[in-house]
Simulated scan of single mutants.
Amino acid sequence: MKRVAILISGGGSNMIRLVESMTGDHPARPVLIASNDPFAAGLAKAEAMGVPTAAVDHRGFRGDRAAFEAALLGPLLDARPDILCLAGFMRILTPGFVERFQGQMLNIHPSLLPKYPGLHTHARALEAGDAEAGCTVHLVTPVLDDGPVLGQARVPVLAGDTPDALAARVLTAEHRLYPAVLRRFAAGQAGRIDL
C-alpha cells in the first residue's frame, strides 16, 4: 500500500477528492495533509476526514525558501510518503526539495500544458481565443509546470466565458482527473490518461 502526503494552500477541493478516492481496492492511502498556511480551510476538512495534518506558516520564513522547506520536511518525512501530491499548493519549491522527491511528486495545473504554465491560466486561454481549455497532472521537476504529463482533461471554451466560469468547469475536470491519475500512478501503471 502506497503512502500519500498531500500539500495544500487553501480550501483543498482536489485534496478532498484524492482522499475520498483512496478507499477499497485503491493501491494508496492518505497519511498526511500539510499546508503552508495554518488557517487553510482544507486542514479542518482533512481532520474531519480523519487524516493527520501539519502546517508550516511560510510567512515566518520571508525570503528564505530553503528554511521554510526544511521546516516542512519535518512532518513530511515523519509521515514517510511514497507519493507527494501538490493540490493547490501555492509555493514554488526549490530544486533541492523537488529532487528529494524525484519521480514521486505529482501536481495538478489548470491548463493543457505546455500551454500557460504559471498563473492566470483561464484568462490567458480566453485572451488567446482557444476553443478548449483543461487541466494537466504531471510529475514535478525543478522547472515550473514542466514535468512529464501523466494525464489531461479537456473542457470546451464557451461563448461568453469569463475566467471564473471557465475555472469552475476546469475544476470539475480536475476533480475527475487527479484521482484517476493517482490510482494509476500508485499502481505502477505506465501511460497517460486523457479524459
Rank of each mutant, 00 (worst) to 15 (best):
H122Y: 11
L32M: 12
A70K: 10
M15I: 13
A46D: 14
L84G: 01
T136G: 08
I16K: 15
G24C: 10
P110W: 02
G50F: 12
M105F: 04
F97L: 11
I33C: 14
E132S: 14
L18T: 09
P117L: 00
A66K: 13
S21L: 10
D82L: 05
D82C: 06
P110T: 02
A44H: 14
M15E: 10
A125N: 03
P75Y: 09
P81Y: 03
F61Q: 11
E69K: 11
A40Y: 10
D130A: 14
G88F: 07
G12E: 02
M15W: 09
T23I: 13
Q102Y: 07
A48R: 10
R59I: 09
A125K: 03
G129W: 08
D130T: 05
H109P: 02
G103F: 06
P75R: 07
H58W: 09
R59E: 13
V31A: 14
L43H: 08
A55D: 12
V56P: 00
P110E: 03
D82I: 08
D78G: 10
T136L: 09
E99P: 00
Q104S: 07
L18A: 07
P114H: 04
V137E: 07
A66N: 04
V56N: 07
S35T: 11
A128N: 12
D25K: 13
G12M: 03
G103R: 00
N14C: 14
A41L: 15
I83V: 13
Y116I: 00
L139M: 11
R80I: 00
S21K: 10
P27W: 04
G96H: 01
P117D: 04
P27R: 03
A28K: 05
M105W: 04
Y116R: 01
A131V: 09
P38A: 12
